[in-house]
Amino acid sequence: MLDQAEISGLEDFAREIRKKTLYTIGTLGVGHIGGALSIADILALLYGKEMRYDPADPAMENRDLLVLSKGHAGPALYAALAIKGFFPLDWLDTLNKGGTRLPSHCDRTKTPGIDMTTGSLGQGLSAACGLALGRKIDRKDVHVFAVIGDGESQEGQNWEAAMFAAHYGLSNLIAFTDYNKLQIDGPVDEIMSLSDIEGKWKSFGWHVQRCSGHDFAAMHEAVAAAKAQGKDGKGKPSMIILDTIKGKGAAFCEGKVENHNMPVSIETARQAIAELG
């Protein structure tokens, strides 16, 4: 269980991720702000508490790994990695500028700390399965985390990967669905409903939990339970459905369908940063 000091530390980290994400996208003037802000808290929990890593040695043996399958949320991950010291903070000024090491979508060859290249939706979970299986074959005690989007869950490849992970008993794989209920064309339920999303993952043989994606105590409990059931190579792959709010923490875009990829002026970003305190 997280104590109050840990929760408050994670809240600070998440606030910094949001501020830097807003700053980064505001500096460029446009970006995938909604889905970046909705995962700020899970990124804070992973990089602030759950994952084993060394910013000075991104290729460290036995480090835990993250596949951000919704690669367009890269700016939030870049903020988390920069805050943790994987690269200098001033790189955040260069998002999507020619020659940058921080492209719109995550690229393992460009950015220290990015564990897998993503950007074509639906591919990340398969790659996470491969990473998890590789670590399992090598008897390495490593967790592979993956974050997939809710709209992204409409891609069929996820369900191929879902079968695969359960069949090969990848209990070292812990995935999250960023269930912010919005996709580009509208509410997920109106465009292509995921219906009983928990039931779907359960029926594919996964260990499934659901909690708020903005509640550190609940998310930590879920990750702890996922790790516990998968201990010693036994158990199932885990899916933790995170109920989130797209654009969480920035009043100008929070919960708005048009926030998937929208213009954000530096003035708007600065105001949102000030409101975060």
Partner: peptide
């Protein structure tokens, strides 16, 4: 996709 992940794991 799994092959890509295995490759990223050094396989």
């Amino acid at each position: 996709g799994v092959a890509a992940g295995l490759s990223a794991a050094g396989k």
